[in-house]
Design a protein around this nucleic acid. Structure first.
Lengths: 206, 206, 206, 206
DNA sequence: CATGAATGAGATTTCATTCAT
DNA sequence: AATGAATGAAATCTCATTCAT
């Protein structure tokens, strides 16, 4: 019967386990990762794991949920106050790439979720998509964006972010180079914007 | 010592194993799938597996390579003779969605490759990207497309295909609805095209 | 260092643990029962258990001993003053069935003792048998009962009680129905009695 | 997916496991017994166990069922042709004691069944009781036995057998001495018989 | 006295792979 | 080429018990 620890010592141990699991799952992959590895890295006995989590999956789920909250919060904070949707995308993408680069392991963990707990995986993307759909719809309503199926657009944008993150952050361990980011932003700007600027003006940002 | 079978009977057994593995890996996932399941479904004894494949990973790799060839060939055939890049995308996307829908299991298998054999996974996307880059670069050279980083654009397009496939094909078990496909095509057309049509004309196709 | 508690508060905690263990052992079985379950049900912390009992077995033994005393005392009280051995059996059986029905869990605990601590188990039955043997021998000496091996007779009677208890109390959760009790009493009366009443008179009791 | 072995070698291994389990469960008790012990004694690898049985409980159940069949068959054969119910009891009890003495371990296994798989345990006794009830009812119908609740009588007789078996076979590792058997038979004869012989004649046997 | 976190040995079970037939 | 029994390492999870506070 694992539970929320009532003492600070317990809190700390639980956190050590989460930190260790983040690394181990990220580096080794969920299936190949073992509880032993996690507890060793956390510096506790094997059995201690089960004081805090009922099983291997539970800690994985917790990590994904944590990531979901952190990422969405960071983006929300970063775009707060912005009114131009294109600008929001520029900022949002940058936050995402930075986050992924700083938390490679967490980032890799979500990708695996599809094969660990499909419901969790869908939950993650649906939540992300919901926020997107709201924002995009509003921008369409006020004429900022071309009128397109907002859910479709949301998944397009998430797909772009995901693949650029995979290609540059995961494979090259860097944030996507400026040229790439600018190309991508130009692509989505023209793709979405209802009044795209003329070509000479586009790259002043960034 | 697994080998290419010399007899037709051997060929057949090998194929039965590949077919079974496709289903089992697709439905159960690579890690959870067992050789027993595969051989049972193929209707052969457990040991027979090792007559044809050195280990579990080998048959997985073979399936991914097979998919890679089939998908790229189907797309190549479908776009053959087309000169307009936008038109090629329209066709390519449709072929991809149809393929994914008809071969759900194979499609799911590539997605898993990332966590089974990362090199294979990268090989798969790099090969796909190469073709894309070639085609996009040419279209940029002749002024058909806006000049953007071609590799970036390739990964953007693959990301879009991947996420729409995930959202509609895998989650809903249907091909993406017309409205979605049209929205997506409008998005990438404006995003890529150097001379996008005016807004009223866009959706007559499809 | 478990010990007899000196404070009343300690007494109470100890008793809570015994009560909880009775339920948990009875319902879950000794082996599958856990200290956690017991302490949770008792409303104390896990470690507290070891303040009162050196280990899991100790509390089990205590429960069996307690049961042994209570059951033998209840029977002793009930048959006090009776001189007719047959009558004593009638009363003894009834007390036993009632006790078993009221303390299902304790009753189930003795049955398990055989596989937890065989010495304890034998001690329990030998003690019970001793009392029986004394009483039966006396009754044989005064010619009330047919002369049979008294220990054999004791184990026959205990076996009967045990199996009727199992069949009706444990399996049906009721006290054995009148018809059953009367049949059983008729059986043992004729089996034991040196001057069994004629058949028509037997069932006047009950 | 354990299954019936198709080769003689498999049959043999399966039997070795059953034989080993009989000893280990009998001597160590179900809960404390480990798969390791069983496979070691059987002279096979740990994993081999699971080729033949899905889990520890399965092999236990198989042993109980086997015992049930063997014991009932041995009794059936022994009493075949007998018409006098009392005589049948005499023979049946002797077969039971002999069986229990020769197969101590199997005998101990049934006793444990109560705490391993209660349904199995009840099934075992209900089956035994059914046979008893049939035989006793017939004997009552023809006036051989005193009319009593037949199920009650069945459980009385089983309880007697069980407790004498426990006391002499299990605790003393011998068959109950003649004096004990004769006392018991005298007890049940008078208890059951509708025309008990006069007292002087009873004990000529043994 | 009481707490509850920590321990670690041990149990069951799985499964890719080998091998004798 | 095919079989299917056998292997044994490794993984997950449980739980009685200890111990610092």
């Amino acid at each position: 019967m694992p539970s929320q620890p009532s003492t600070p010592r317990g809190q700390q141990t639980r956190q050590k386990l989460l930190d260790a699991a983040e690394v181990v799952f990220g580096e080794t992959g969920y299936e190949r990762a073992g509880i032993v590895e996690i507890t060793q890295r956390a510096g506790v006995a094997q059995g201690t794991f089960y004081t805090y989590f009922p099983d291997k999956k539970a800690i994985f789920i917790e990590l994904v949920k944590e990531l979901s909250h952190r990422l969405r919060r960071e983006i929300a904070i970063a775009v707060e106050g912005l009114t131009d949707r294109i600008e929001m995308e520029r900022v949002g993408f940058r936050v995402f790439f930075t986050f992924a680069h700083q938390h490679r392991n967490l980032y890799k963990i979500v990708r695996q979720a599809e094969f660990v707990d499909e419901d969790l995986f869908r939950w993650y993307y649906r939540l992300l998509a919901e926020g997107y759909v709201r924002g995009l719809s509003q921008a369409m309503d006020v004429g900022q964006l071309r009128r397109l199926d907002p859910e479709c657009l949301a998944y397009c944008l998430m797909g772009i972010a995901d693949f650029l993150g995979m290609r540059w952050v995961l494979w090259n361990d860097e944030r996507p180079p400026e040229a790439v980011v600018e190309s991508m932003l130009a692509f989505i700007r023209h793709g979405m914007d209802s009044h795209p600027p003329t070509q000479g003006q586009e790259t002043q940002g960034g």
